[in-house]
Amino acid sequence: MNLRKIVHGTWMAFCVFLLVSPALFFFIWMLSLSLKYEIDNGAYPPILIPERIAWKNYAGVFESNNFLLYFKNSIIVTGGATLLALMVGVPAGYGIARMRATKSAMVIMIARMTPGLSFLIPLFLLFQWLGLLGTLVPQILIHLVVTVPIVIWIMISYFETTPLELEEAAMIDGATRWQVFRNVALPIAKPGIVVAFILSVIFSWNNFVFGIVLASRETRTLPVAVYNMLSFEQVSWGPLAAAALIVTLPVLILTIVAQRQIIAGLTAGAVKGG
């Protein structure tokens, strides 16, 4: 009996190790690449932990004068697109849930199915016509294609689960429609808003395809900037891996810190979304 438990435990531990190892190995290797000098990165057999740590890879990334600009661009685009999406998406999720118009959310589903590029062609022409290319505005607006559906989708499913009785009580207490939303529905929906915020930030931050078309030299976001390092500079692995890690680090930290919210958001959207 006891032996069986030990065997079972060992087997489970092995399974989990097997499951987690690709992810774990990848990120450790990414870190290793970013901390090695070129000599060590070019060594065969590969070296995991170098004798000399190349902090200069990171210093180099920050010193390259445009990196901070791209960082700022990313924050403006992600921040702008997320805030705008919350401003229009949270009330919309509320309205759709209360009108029981969930069928209308099909538009959101279809938007999720549509390839990003097919939004890009007409909007690119529109922005060109409006003379907005060269500013961050087109990117903020086109990121709404990603963030607004996320926010609306999550908020619909969240507001559908909040009790209607509370809002009726508020109506009897003398609240107007807006006050019911502002003072009762919104505070209760705070956890849902947090989930929508996190997912919106992550997917906007990670977005690449809109940037490669719409961004000029001055308006690149981080993913585009990192990709351009690969294309135009003499490729050296250490600084490139360091830049890649810096770009994705905020997201990775968020994933670990807000794991519960992320999983709740993704599965709520997914399971209902089918």
Binding site: E165, E168, A169, V184
Partner: peptide
Amino acid sequence: FQNYALYPH
């Protein structure tokens, strides 16, 4: 109300 409908926040 039946479930009291107290504002939880």
